[in-house]
Simulated assay, not measured.
Amino acid sequence: MSLRWPGRCLLPLLLALAPAWAGVPHPTTLPPVRADGPRVLLLDTQHSRIGFEVRTRFGQRIEGVFPQFEGRIEVLSDGRHQVHLKMFTRSVEIPGKARYTGWMRGEEFFDAGRHPMVEFDSLPYWPDTVAEGGDIEGRLTLRGVSHPESLRVEKAQCARPGYDCDVVSRGTVQRGRYGMDSWQLALSDRVTFVLRARLSEAPKP
């Protein structure tokens, strides 16, 4: 998703929102779903994919994945949507590269031992952002540090995005803002998160 977080880029299935960082809580886990709360759409973890990319100073692209993640969209009473997403860092991997996988899970990058989750909570947004594409605002928590970030969702390629086609979004964060400031001479400061999201079938009203 040519998303942008700090630099105006970042994550998918998370759609365009209203401004106002002040009221955004620092997420520690997905907020509980109340029986009398908003209608909930769940991310289909079997058919969705969350990955990330980091480039070296020599132009090489290192691609990783989060095999374990959870997500949901709350449909609010006014019709807007709100996304809650968490990714588990202890399972993060660079496919086929055990050494890089160990480094990504270690203290110099995601620090999975102390910070087992990366989380994103969006501000409320109107659902046509998914169909038309656009930016979303929210708060990212990474390594215990939270910052407001902007996401970009790509224009949908089908009439029912999330069901008949992926909802695709991308976002680039500056890793130094989250304490991931090692290897500055070897790696770019930018980490791009990529989400290709599908939803579980919508519940009956």
Score class of each variant (00 low, 15 high):
residue 137 E to I: 15
residue 142 L to H: 04
residue 131 A to N: 09
residue 171 G to E: 00
residue 158 C to P: 02
residue 177 R to H: 09
residue 136 I to V: 15
residue 152 R to C: 09
residue 176 G to W: 12
residue 179 G to M: 03
residue 150 S to R: 12
residue 176 G to T: 11
residue 177 R to N: 12
residue 123 L to C: 07
residue 174 Q to P: 06
residue 151 L to H: 11
residue 165 C to E: 01
residue 133 G to A: 02
residue 129 T to A: 13
residue 175 R to E: 00
residue 165 C to A: 01
residue 122 S to W: 06
residue 148 P to L: 10
residue 161 P to K: 07
residue 123 L to W: 04
residue 149 E to T: 14
residue 138 G to P: 02
residue 158 C to W: 04
residue 145 V to R: 04
residue 127 P to S: 11
residue 122 S to D: 02
residue 165 C to V: 03
residue 130 V to A: 14
residue 166 D to Q: 07
residue 152 R to F: 14
residue 131 A to M: 12
residue 126 W to P: 00
residue 145 V to H: 01
residue 164 D to F: 06
residue 128 D to T: 12
residue 164 D to C: 02
residue 179 G to W: 13
residue 171 G to V: 09
residue 127 P to Y: 13
residue 128 D to W: 14
residue 132 E to R: 15
residue 170 R to Q: 14
residue 166 D to S: 10
residue 128 D to M: 14
residue 167 V to M: 09
residue 121 D to K: 10
residue 169 S to V: 10
residue 135 D to I: 13
residue 179 G to N: 06
residue 132 E to V: 11
residue 126 W to R: 11
residue 136 I to T: 15
residue 131 A to K: 15
residue 147 H to P: 06
residue 125 Y to F: 15
residue 145 V to I: 14
residue 169 S to Y: 05
residue 143 R to W: 01
residue 123 L to Y: 10
residue 156 A to S: 12
residue 141 T to F: 06
residue 135 D to S: 15
residue 141 T to H: 02
residue 150 S to G: 06
residue 144 G to N: 08
residue 168 V to F: 08
residue 127 P to F: 09
residue 132 E to N: 14
residue 180 M to I: 13
residue 156 A to V: 08
residue 136 I to Y: 14
residue 160 R to V: 11
residue 138 G to V: 03
residue 167 V to T: 07
residue 121 D to R: 10
residue 175 R to L: 05
residue 152 R to P: 07
residue 157 Q to C: 06
residue 175 R to Y: 04
residue 162 G to K: 03
residue 141 T to E: 03
residue 158 C to V: 05
residue 168 V to D: 00
residue 129 T to W: 07
residue 124 P to F: 09
residue 174 Q to K: 11
residue 138 G to I: 03
residue 165 C to T: 06
residue 153 V to R: 02
residue 155 K to C: 01
residue 150 S to M: 10
residue 176 G to R: 09
residue 156 A to P: 02
residue 122 S to C: 07
residue 123 L to E: 01
residue 159 A to T: 10
residue 131 A to Y: 14
residue 150 S to H: 11
residue 129 T to S: 14
residue 177 R to T: 08
residue 121 D to A: 11
residue 147 H to Y: 11
residue 177 R to P: 01
residue 144 G to R: 13
residue 171 G to I: 04
residue 139 R to A: 09
residue 177 R to L: 14
residue 150 S to K: 11
residue 142 L to K: 00
residue 174 Q to L: 14
residue 125 Y to K: 10
residue 133 G to T: 05
residue 150 S to T: 15
residue 135 D to P: 12
residue 148 P to V: 06
residue 163 Y to M: 02
residue 146 S to F: 07
residue 155 K to G: 00
residue 133 G to N: 00
residue 171 G to A: 03
residue 155 K to I: 01
residue 178 Y to W: 12
residue 149 E to D: 06
residue 178 Y to M: 04
residue 166 D to K: 10
residue 133 G to I: 10
residue 124 P to N: 07
residue 158 C to Q: 01
residue 122 S to M: 03
residue 123 L to G: 08
residue 155 K to L: 05
residue 143 R to S: 00
residue 139 R to H: 05
